[in-house]
């Protein structure tokens, strides 16, 4: 089970990242759970400096931008 977390306080880009990550994980066909982390203190515990950020199984994969679908697939898979 992959644990995908989207860090972001709720801006438009965060929604986009969540949608792309969700789609990427679906097309990969792996079991996953998607969680949005909106609490600032929790976000900061990952030490990211720009939101939105993509975290897979506790590792920050990308921050500050929304990836393409293929890029998201690579980052998650």
């Amino acid at each position: 089970m992959k644990k995908i977390q989207i860090l972001g306080t709720g801006c438009a880009k965060c929604q986009n990242l969540a949608a792309v990550a969700d789609q990427a994980a679906k097309t990969l066909g792996v079991p996953y759970e998607l969680q949005k982390v909106t609490d600032l203190k929790q976000i900061m515990s990952f030490r990211v400096m720009s939101t939105p950020a993509l975290v897979v199984d506790g590792v920050v994969k990308l921050s500050g931008r929304v990836p393409t679908l293929e890029e998201a697939q690579k980052l998650i898979g």
Binding site: T9, K13, L40, R47, V48, M49, S50, T51, G64
Partner: peptide, 15 residues
């Protein structure tokens, strides 16, 4: 540096 006001807080803390 790329900056969006929605990231102002994480950036502030990071700095």
């Amino acid at each position: 540096t790329p900056f969006c006001s929605c990231s102002a807080v994480p950036l502030f803390i990071g700095f």
